[in-house]
Design a protein around this nucleic acid. Sequence first.
DNA 1: TATTGTTATACTCTATAACTATA
DNA 2: TATAGTTATAGAGTATAACAATA
Lengths: 162, 162
Amino acid sequence: MPARTTTPHATPESAHATPESARFTDTELADEMFFLMARAAATGSEHANRTLGDLALKVRDYSVLALACSDEEPTQRELSEFLALDPSRIVAIVDTLEQRGTVERRTDPRDRRSKIIVATVAGRRLYADARELVVAATDRSLAGLNPDERRDLFQLMQKVAF
Amino acid sequence: MPARTTTPHATPESAHATPESARFTDTELADEMFFLMARAAATGSEHANRTLGDLALKVRDYSVLALACSDEEPTQRELSEFLALDPSRIVAIVDTLEQRGTVERRTDPRDRRSKIIVATVAGRRLYADARELVVAATDRSLAGLNPDERRDLFQLMQKVAF
DNA sequence: TATTGTTATACTCTATAACTATA
DNA sequence: TATAGTTATAGAGTATAACAATA
């Protein structure tokens, strides 16, 4: 996923306001969209990271694996752009995924400088399991919203994100 | 803002998909809420960070300053909890704000271990300027949404974030 | 000459553990 | 004994520059 998480980043403890600090929810800061976004993203990534830990994955690994499982045949450069991660970061992530036997680097026949990242059979199995976990974690993160609200939020977020 | 970040995190280049990687917007990954959140938060924080740079502030500094300007008289511990940042990180942020003469540490008379962070007059002026910049940056980040959609998104995000 | 992937490196951020002063 | 703030430090993440292979 993109950087920033902010985002921005993994959260040490739950990002949900504890009773002691809940009184800050009425401040101007808590009314700013960037703050709400950062907070929601932090909680979401935290939940996803925690649940993905069962498969020894982090959200970054998961994101690369997911795109490697798509039919788009991404090069590392494209992964870097779409995930807003430095090319050197992609190298490291692909290294770990490759060492686990979940993805392969294939030289792009049309441009032999580029390497296409494709998932192996084992990688696709891992992704299927991971996606189930992530979907379940998302469900928990959005526990406060009813189905209509979730659909609305999803559509609005797609507009904002792309 | 929370760690996340997104957290999550500052983005090297624009988090918006470039034409070359736009084809990934149809993948399963791009349909996952945590990914959309992380991406939106990254772009939002990036815009906010960039514009706050004019005042030599980052979003973290801004967040602490905002709460110091509120009437809630936060202690460092409370700032740490609400912003989901480590206490040692709060120390560093308050240090820089204090050196600029924008906030003061006041020993809490009810518990002399705690320090209440309050904005100075200069701090309130800085915050007023910074808030203008942040509001304008938010406006640009949400350029793709009409007023109704912005209101809906705001309400939904508040539910998710708290 | 420019670009992809890679490596190395510096820098920032985050997490942990100790210490002090208060409680 | 426990907690708030502080400090130091190790670790993870990020950014930058250089290099080899290819275009």
